[in-house]
């Protein structure tokens, strides 16, 4: 179903630019650098070979957009971040030790960065 895949990619690109354009509006230099670092990390995770890493990054991005659009609040966002961490643990429990380390590094770090650096910036924009 090539057309379905094409539609999905387009949607994903649209959402990425939506979040990206919001984060690009940051004026402060050090905050802008942190946002750029986050966007690079997110892009890297979204193109990772591991499905879990890609899925985690995609969900995080969608929820950041929902937060920005006020369709969920900060409490909901924090709750979903904890869910993502819990889900990662379920997945990680069934993985070999080496794969566990890699998945943790590529997912939990992005979640922490989003929660501690990106969310305050998005909330300040609302």
């Amino acid at each position: 179903m090539p057309s379905a895949g094409k539609t999905k990619r387009k949607k994903s690109t649209r959402k990425k630019s939506e979040l990206g354009s919001a984060l690009d509006q940051v004026g402060d230099e050090s905050t802008a650098a942190a946002m750029k670092e986050f966007q690079d990390l997110l892009a890297q995770a979204k193109s990772d070979t591991t499905e879990l890493v890609r899925q985690n990054a995609k969900e995080l991005e969608e929820r950041l957009i929902l937060l920005k659009k006020r369709k969920i609040d900060k409490e909901d966002f924090d709750f979903f971040i904890e869910n993502q961490k819990r889900d990662l643990r379920v997945f990680i429990d069934s993985q070999p030790a080496q794969a566990q380390e890699r998945a943790e590094r590529l997912t939990l770090h992005i979640l922490e960065t989003a929660a501690t650096k990106v969310v305050p910036v998005l909330l300040a924009m609302i």
């Binding site: 969900e59 929820r63 929902l66 369709k71 969920i72 909901d76 979903f80 869910n83 993502q84 889900d87």
Partner: peptide, 10 residues
């Protein structure tokens, strides 16, 4: 509605 939908997704 987004909360309900995201909760079920999780």
């Amino acid at each position: 509605p987004a909360l309900a939908s995201e909760m079920k997704k999780d």
